[in-house]
Nucleic acid binder design. Sequence first.
DNA 1: TCTGGGGTCCTAGGACCC
DNA 2: TCTGGGGTCCTAGGACCC
Length: 420
Amino acid sequence: MPVYALVDANNFYVSCERVFRPDLEGLPVGVLSNNDGCFVSRSAELKALGVKMGQPFFETRDLVRRHKVHVFSSNYALYGDMSSRVVACLHGFTPSLEVYSIDESFLDLTGIGGPLPAYAADIRARVKRWTGIPTCVGIGPTKTLAKLANHAAKKALLDPSGVCDLSDPAVRARVLPQVPVADVWGVGRRNAVRLSQLGVTTAADLRDLDPRLARQALTVIGERLVQELRGLSCLSLDRMPSPRRSVAVTRSFGQPVTEWDTMRQAVASHAARAAEKLRAEGMVAEALHVFVRTSRYRPGPACNDSVTVGLQPASADGFVLIAAAANAARRIWRDGVPFSKAGVILTGLRPADRVQADLLDTTDRAKAARLMAAVDAVNSALGRNTLVSAATLGHGWRMRQNNRSPSYTTRLADLPVARA
DNA sequence: TCTGGGGTCCTAGGACCC
DNA sequence: TCTGGGGTCCTAGGACCC
């Protein structure tokens, strides 16, 4: 029987900020989404004050002032770098590891000698010592049970050790009835409502549900969930991430955009960034999707339009994608509408070295590729956006970021200074 | 005034082909 | 009068995840 462990950082973004601000330990701290819109990470102290995941920042201004909450804009360069440090540390514990998200990894611990909880405690201790990041560890014979064990460890359902081992069916029998079905990995809000109509409200109920009924209610995912909760492993460890299928760059605007020129700059900028990501992975895209939309919350007529254009030949050329995105956006642009968000999504991705040549294409593709490589080299050496297409210039749409922390680990100028 | 961003998977339905 | 069946591929939409 396999043994999986899920190592998950505790309120990861907040923990990253605290590594460089140890004075914030024990105080309420939150990290906001792009545009300083919503809370996406909360310290235990902030959760205790009643601030919810995804709650809009503006709703909490009073509370933030009253309780002196420390609020950060998100700093993805920092979180990404801290994440790779955690993963590097975890590699010391198993050769078989799946990086599931920026703050979670599944480890295959099958065949580890000795007691698993002690091993998990070692993992927690070393990650904390080497990176400063606190974690919890859940253990189980399936990924779904390891995930659930992690949930139990975080909520201290059995004990406050930060580790929960659900290998033993007797322990599972004590924990599963305590977990609401909506907290099971893969269930979600909508499915929880459907399941409640079948009388299923806890993880234990779902485990005991007839797999055929689970399939009816939740498709094959539901049937798989039941089996995984029973200890029958259906999901294997994914060590090699499959090649990605899409690249998206979407942003809400700092303020509503009503000028075409501003929208054009935003869409060009998103397209350029998407092309960069594509080139960094050695891929090209066959299709480009652009959308523009008004705010979901603002009263008045809503507008939510999109258009997809094919790219022939498939491309990751910044200038090609900027032109395609701007043309596409022009087709759905409407004068006088207060747009709040726009995005560029690239699909039909394939390796750049396997592009179908186009006999009718007279542009010098090799030359264009050399230009892009030069742009990437300059930006890599001197910082992102050192060299950009003029089409992306203009700041009318840029997002708010009023509380951003320094890039302690990825920018020389922001290196923390130690005084002794 | 102020409400995130980037992904994946599954299914249904239509187009198309033989 | 009476008009097949099976397969693949693609897309849009809906659900989920962090």
